[in-house]
Amino acid sequence: MGGQVGSDGGVMDRNGDPDLATRVFVDHRRLLFTVAYEMLGSAADAEDVVQETWLRWTDVDLDTVRDHRAYLVRIATRQALNRMRTLSRRKESYVGSWLPEPLLTAPDVADDAELADSVSMAMLLVLETLAPVERAVFVLREVFDVPYEEIADAVEKTPAAVRQIAHRARVHVAARRPRGTTSAAQSRAALDAFQRAVETGELQGLFDILAPDVVVLADGGGIRKAVPRPVVGLDKVVRLLAGGLVKAGSALSAEAAQVNGAPALLLWQEDDLHSVVTLRIDEDLVTGIYFVRNPEKLLRMQQQHAVGR
C-alpha cells in the first residue's frame, strides 16, 4: 500500500487525499469504537481495539473484501474478544466494586433510543453478566443488527450455534434489564433531586424516589474512597448518602451532563472531577445509583466520545 502517512495516521495518495482504506476506516470508526466499548465497558480498551483494527486493516487487500463494514466489525470483534481475557483478569484483582468507564456523550445520542439504552451504565452492567461470546453475539445482533452469518464469522461459530447463543443471551438480558422505558425527563427529575441533596443535604426529595431494593455501587478502584461492596436497601442507602456520599458541606458541586446517552451528574471538588453519578430507573423509581470515582476512569471525561451505528 503506497502513499504517505497523514497527520491522523492514515495513508494519503499522491494528491494528498486519504486512500480508500483510510476513507472506509474513518467512515466506520465510530461504529467500531461503539462495538468494542459495549463488549468491554472500557473506553481505553475500546480505543486500543480500534487502533489494533486499523493496523490489521492496512494489511488487507481490499480487492478481496466484498463488504467493508462486515470485515471491519469482524476484526474489531475478534480483537475485543481477545482483550476480554486480559480485562477479566484485571477485574478479578480489582479493589472494590467494578463499574464501566463512563463516556461523556453528545446530546443527540439520546435521539436514538436503542443506541442510548445499549450504552447506558445500567445496560453495560447487565452485559457484564454474559459470557464473552454471548456478549459479543448480543451486541452485534441486538444493537447493530449484524446478520447471523457475519456474526458466525466474527466469533468463529456456526450460524446455527450463533442463533442459539443469541436466543440465550436475549432471554438472560431481558430478565435483568431495567423494567419499562425511562424518559430523559424522568432521569433529569431524579438527578435534580440528587443534586439538591448534594447541595443542601436535604434527602427527603431523594428518599421519595428510591425503590425499597435500591442498590448503590461506588467504584474507587482502591485509589479514591468508595464503598467496597454494593449497599442494598432503602434504609442502608439513605444512611450511606446522608453519612458521606452526598453530605452537605462536603465541598462538592454538581454539574448536569450527558453520560452514556443519558442525563447524569458530575461531582466536582474545586477543579477536580471527583465522581460521575448515573442512575438506573425502573417503573419511576431509582433502583440503582452508580458512582464512578476511580480517577483512571475519569480521564476521558473532558471530551465527548462519538458513539453510533
Rank of each mutant, 00 (worst) to 15 (best):
R229Y: 13
G222L: 07
P230M: 05
G244K: 03
A242T: 04
K225V: 15
V238G: 13
D235E: 15
D208G: 03
G222V: 06
L245I: 06
A211V: 04
I209D: 02
L245N: 00
V237G: 10
V216S: 09
V214S: 11
G233F: 11
G222C: 10
F207I: 04
V214M: 05
V231K: 09
A218T: 13
G243C: 08
A211E: 07
V214T: 10
G221W: 03
I223H: 08
G243R: 05
V238R: 06
Q204W: 02
D219L: 10
D219V: 09
L217K: 08
G220W: 00
L245F: 04
L217H: 08
A242K: 02
D213F: 04
L240M: 15
L206R: 00
G244F: 09
G222T: 04
D219A: 11
K225W: 14
L206M: 06
L203A: 14
P230K: 01
A218Q: 10
K236E: 09
D235Y: 03
D219Q: 08
A226D: 14
G233R: 00
K225D: 15
V214K: 02
V214E: 14
L203C: 08
V214D: 07
V238Q: 06
V216C: 01
V215I: 10
A242R: 07
L241H: 06
R229S: 14
A226Y: 05
L240Y: 13
A226V: 08
G221Y: 00
D219I: 13
K225H: 14
A218L: 05
I223G: 06
D235P: 05
A226P: 07
D219W: 09
V216E: 09
Q204H: 07
D208V: 05
K236I: 05
R224G: 01
G222N: 03
V237F: 04
D208T: 04
V237P: 09
D235T: 11
G243Q: 06
P228T: 06
L210S: 00
D208A: 08
P212M: 06
G233T: 02
R239I: 04
